[in-house]
Computed example of a mutant assay.
Amino acid sequence: MLLKATWSDEAEDLSNLGIDIYMYIFENNPHVRTLFPKIHQHWENWRSSKEVEMQGYLFATTLARVIENIDNIELTRPFLYKIGARHVAYAKRGFRRNYWEMFQDGMACVMTNRIFNSFNCHLDRVQKNDAVATWKKLAVFVINNLKEGFDSASAIAK
């Protein structure tokens, strides 16, 4: 209930959520931006590039699919696994398994800020704290499944 209460499927909200997550990652780990050549090419203006908007939207729609299936979350495991497996191709650019932790941190941080600063004024403080804890658990679920896919594909690629 708390996940759905703190979620918006509107395209603009999804785009902003994804951008905020990538902003968190790039600002806290600037070297990661080099893994995204189409974003990195904008150097100083990367924040306003269409490429970061698209990348953010893609990540947010992944979360949207998980939220859509929250009542039967096991259905999302193969979906997340495949996404994780596809990221083995980015290892040539420097992507490493531990980079998933940045996404987990970014999701937790961005959702915490949204819950306490912009969304759902109808939730009391205890509900907001519970929502944050639930989002952190969901972030762990998502990232663990991405890692599983990445690890399996990495083992096959060797």
Rank of each mutant, 00 (worst) to 15 (best):
F116I: 11
L138C: 00
F79R: 01
I83C: 01
I67E: 00
E10Y: 15
K92E: 14
L123S: 10
L63N: 05
A60K: 06
Y81G: 03
F119D: 14
T76S: 09
A89N: 07
N113I: 09
F79Q: 00
V140H: 13
D151Y: 05
L14G: 02
W100C: 13
S154K: 11
N144A: 10
G56V: 01
F79Y: 07
M111E: 05
N145L: 04
S152P: 00
E148R: 04
S8C: 09
V52H: 01
M107G: 01
S152T: 12
A157G: 01
Y81K: 03
N98W: 09
I143L: 04
M107F: 10
C109A: 15
F26A: 06
K38Y: 07
I115Q: 03
S48P: 00
V32A: 03
S48Q: 11
H31G: 08
A131R: 01
S48G: 08
E10F: 14
G84D: 10
I39C: 02
T34L: 06
V52P: 00
N145Y: 09
R93K: 09
N69W: 02
F119N: 14
F36I: 08
T112G: 08
T6D: 12
L138N: 02
I143V: 15
M54T: 10
F36V: 06
L146K: 03
F95K: 01
Y99H: 12
P78S: 04
G106D: 06
N129K: 08
G56N: 03
Q41Y: 11
H40A: 15
K137G: 06
L123V: 13
N28R: 13
D151P: 05
R114W: 10
Y81C: 03
E148A: 12
L138M: 03
L3T: 05
V132G: 02
I19P: 02
D9M: 04
I70D: 00
E27Q: 09
N72V: 01
E74I: 06
V126D: 15
V132R: 03
N145H: 14
N117H: 10
I143F: 03
N29I: 05
Q127R: 09
P30I: 10
I21V: 15
F116L: 11
P37S: 09
I143M: 09
S15F: 10
E74K: 12
K82I: 12
D13A: 15
S48R: 10
P30V: 12
S152K: 12
T61E: 09
I67W: 00
I70T: 00
N45A: 12
N145C: 08
I70M: 02
D9S: 14
R65Y: 14
G18P: 00
R33P: 02
F103V: 07
I156R: 11
I39L: 04
K137W: 05
I73A: 04
L3S: 01
